[in-house]
Simulated scan of single mutants.
Amino acid sequence: MKKITTLSISALASAMLLITGCSANNGNKETAAKSVSVTEQSPAKEKVGYSLGYMMAEGNKEAVGDLNLDTFEKGFRDGYEGKKAALTEEQMQEVLTTYQKEQEAKFVKDMESKAGANKTKGSAFLVENGKKAGVKTTASGLQYKVVTAGTGKSPKATDVVEVNYEGKLIDGTVFDSSYERGEPVEFPLNQVIAGWTEGLQLMKEGGKYEFYIPSDIAYGEAGNAGIEPNSTLIFTVELLKVK
């Protein structure tokens, strides 16, 4: 999973292409984008313009969530038609750089807020979860529950393991699952989060465990794709084979 990153100038530049399709008919009317209608029977050039615009917008809309589409279209038309820009190139660069810095500051503040809230929620969850029948807690804070004990061998940290698993947040949201993909995965046990490296060494082949992993032995303050910073994670893991 990819790490969460802040807005970059390159992402911002890509986002500036969001509604390319709005101007694809090369018309001079300011209302052209609003009046055009595209269907399967439209001319090829219209469909090309619309397709480019839609795909670029869909792929980049999160980069500039508050983009003013009217001024974007005005800027695009002026540039495409060779008109004099309302701002100098230096001014435009300054505007984009300032915007990026503002978005980065907002992002950092938002992540710090979420990190604090998730840490508090996770700690409270683990306190209550640790009291449940069958749940054991290790020195690192890792909690686990044996669903099926297993009878094969246990892996070492340097081994490659084959597993099926499902990963959830404490609110029940599933963020990753080999079951959904329809096939198990293999990986070196010392190249995953610390909670997994520790937890799977407690298992035997054929076993099935539930792991409740504190954020500091999961993805920590960095978080990951679909996982906010300082998130406590819940995994159901079947150890199929130690290689």
Rank of each mutant, 00 (worst) to 15 (best):
K136S: 13
Q93F: 06
M56V: 04
S14M: 10
G226L: 06
Q41M: 11
G116C: 04
V146Y: 03
S123V: 10
Q103F: 02
D110T: 14
A157K: 14
L67N: 07
K74R: 11
G150P: 06
T236P: 01
K2P: 10
L87P: 00
Q41E: 15
K114F: 03
S178T: 15
G21H: 05
A15C: 13
S8Y: 08
S140M: 05
Y212G: 00
S154D: 06
K74M: 10
V64H: 04
K136W: 01
K45G: 05
A115P: 11
S215T: 09
N28V: 04
F211Q: 07
D70C: 03
K204E: 01
S35I: 12
K208G: 03
N68W: 10
K132Y: 00
G116L: 06
E58W: 09
V64Y: 14
S8K: 07
L17H: 11
V135G: 01
N190E: 08
K74I: 14
V185L: 12
S8W: 12
A86E: 05
A24R: 08
S215R: 04
G223T: 01
T137C: 01
S8C: 06
D78M: 00
A115H: 08
K168V: 08
T236K: 08
G49D: 01
K119A: 14
G220C: 05
P229H: 07
I4H: 08
E221K: 14
K3S: 00
T173E: 06
N68F: 07
A32N: 11
E89H: 00
L67I: 15
E58D: 11
G116F: 09
N68Q: 11
I217N: 04
N28C: 00
F175L: 09
S37T: 06
D159Y: 12
R181I: 04
G150D: 05
S42K: 15
V108R: 15
F187M: 08
Q103C: 08
Y54A: 07
G150H: 10
V95D: 14
T151A: 04
E90G: 00
A11G: 14
S23F: 08
S231K: 03
S154R: 10
T148W: 01
Y99R: 10
A133E: 12
E89M: 02
